[in-house]
Simulated scan of single mutants.
Amino acid sequence: MTLARGNAGAFEHNRMVMLFSMMDGSREVGCAISSSAMDDLEHVARTRPEQREEQFLRLRDRIEQCASRKFLAGEFEGTPPGIILRSLDFRS
């Protein structure tokens, strides 16, 4: 089963990640993508923090596809377990 779209969260400046969620049926799965991964996807040097949410929305389909792949592979991290996406996850 692939994940369904959840909520777009907010950019967490201290950790340099964009938080979001995906839904596994009725269970919410916490996810995050690093700012460097989003910049790599767009081939830009550095996006300003106040533009991260807009950047996430532009890239959302690709980000969520990658999160679904990691979910199906059981690649969870942290406590509580969630999905964390890095530049490495988007390389073929």
Rank of each mutant, 00 (worst) to 15 (best):
I84K: 15
S68Q: 11
R5W: 11
L88E: 15
E12P: 02
N14H: 03
T47Y: 01
S26N: 15
M38N: 04
N7W: 06
G82R: 07
A8G: 11
R58T: 02
L19N: 05
S21P: 03
S21D: 12
I63A: 08
R60A: 04
R5M: 09
L19H: 03
K70F: 11
L41R: 05
G30K: 15
M18N: 00
D61L: 14
P81Q: 11
G6M: 05
R62P: 01
G6H: 06
S34K: 01
Q55S: 07
Q51G: 04
M38Y: 02
R91L: 15
G74P: 03
A37P: 10
G78H: 01
R48C: 08
D39W: 12
R48G: 10
Q51D: 09
G74H: 09
M16T: 01
R69H: 11
V44F: 10
R46F: 07
R46G: 03
G82K: 02
A32M: 13
S92K: 11
T79W: 14
C66T: 13
S35H: 14
M16K: 13
R52L: 01
P80M: 13
G6R: 08
R5N: 10
E64L: 12
Q55C: 05
K70Q: 14
L85W: 02
L3D: 08
G74V: 03
P49M: 00
P49F: 00
S21A: 08
L57F: 07
R5T: 10
A8C: 12
V17I: 12
L57T: 01
L3C: 07
D61I: 09
F76C: 05
G30I: 14
R48Y: 10
A32F: 10
C66W: 08
F56K: 00
L41Y: 04
G30P: 15
M22W: 07
E64G: 02
F90M: 09
L88A: 15
R86S: 14
G25L: 12
E53P: 00
Q55A: 01
S35N: 11
S35F: 09
E77L: 11
A10P: 00
E77Q: 13
E28V: 14
R27A: 10
E53N: 00
A4C: 05
S87F: 05
A10T: 13
R46M: 06
F90W: 11
N7T: 08
E75R: 11
G6C: 10
R69Q: 13
D61C: 08
A8K: 13
L59K: 11
L59M: 10
C66E: 14
A4K: 10
A67F: 05
K70G: 09
K70L: 15
P49W: 01
E53A: 00
I83K: 03
I33P: 00
H13E: 08
C31E: 06
I84Q: 14
L72K: 09
M22T: 04
C31K: 07
S21K: 06
F90G: 05
R86I: 09
L88Y: 15
L59A: 10
E54W: 02
F56R: 00
L72D: 12
M16Q: 14
G74F: 06
L57D: 08
G82I: 02
G74L: 05
S34Y: 02
H13D: 07
L59I: 04
E64D: 08
S26R: 15
R86A: 12
M23V: 05
Q65L: 14
G82L: 04
G25D: 13
G6A: 06
F76Q: 07
K70H: 12
F90A: 11
M22C: 06
A73F: 01
L88K: 14
R15V: 01
R62Y: 09
N7M: 08
A73W: 02
